[in-house]
């Protein structure tokens, strides 16, 4: 069998369009997910049972159920309440919730690993508890968890392929559409795989660059 290179080249523009959707969803989800993860981490560290127990249950469930099921649940839940929400939004919400559940414990551990002296130094200078959190702790935590966030972003990018099942026209979906008209799965899926690979490569390189920059003050 021969490889139809022309098909790959002809399909590239629309594959790249799909890749852009994939990238948009993943970046939106990582931002929303990291912020939600931070909120969950603060809940876990609050010392209040009324916050900790529901947070733990939420995290435990999201970690114990396949992501594809979570996508279906989010998607159907909205339509069940009569909300007409685009599949794209459902996908981003499912992705953000999922990564938040995984990041909560990473962020919690990051906060706990900051030496107590850091809080005390700030309190001693009369800085408020909230200010300490925002200006002293969170920047340090962020540097610590940067490698984990990169991993999460890579995982999100891979998981985003599953939103194709609720008809979001992402890279995977575009690939499927081309295959259904051209009947050339080999070329198209290899091209799709390579595009995912290149996006992840760019993410890990970018993160390495950030890590080097962040390491400067250590």
């Amino acid at each position: 069998m021969d490889i139809n290179v022309d098909l790959i080249i002809d399909s590239l523009p629309i594959l790249l369009k799909g890749a852009l959707v994939t990238l948009q969803m993943s970046l939106l989800a990582i931002v929303i997910g990291t912020i939600s993860g931070l909120v969950l981490a603060v809940f876990l560290l609050s010392g209040k049972k009324t916050l900790i127990v529901p947070t733990r249950i939420f995290i435990n469930l999201l970690r114990g159920i396949p992501f594809i099921i979570q996508i279906f649940i989010v998607y159907f839940s909205f339509s069940n309440f009569g909300l007409e929400i685009p599949a794209f939004t459902s996908g981003v919400i499912a992705m953000a919730l999922n990564t938040a559940a995984f990041q909560a414990d990473i962020i919690r551990a990051g906060i706990e690993s900051i030496p107590k002296g850091q809080h005390e130094a700030a309190f001693a200078l009369g800085i408020s508890k909230r200010q300490t959190m925002i200006r002293i702790l969170i920047p340090q935590v962020f540097v610590k968890i940067l490698p984990s966030i990169t991993n999460e972003l890579i995982t999100l990018l891979k998981n985003s392929s599953l939103v194709s099942v609720i008809a979001v026209v992402d890279l995977t979906r575009v690939g499927q559409q081309i295959v259904s008209t051209s009947y050339r799965p080999a070329e198209i899926y290899i091209a799709v795989a390579l595009l995912y690979f290149l996006m992840n490569l760019a993410i890990s390189q970018g993160s390495r660059y950030l890590e080097r920059k962040a390491a400067a003050y250590r």
Partner: peptide, 23 residues
């Protein structure tokens, strides 16, 4: 290792299931 860790499992499965018959 890099290929299987940096591409979606779904695409890997598509490659296995749909590309095989072509060959």
């Amino acid at each position: 290792i890099e290929f299987f860790r940096n591409t979606p499992f779904l695409i890997q499965v598509f490659l296995l299931y749909y590309v095989g018959p072509v060959f």
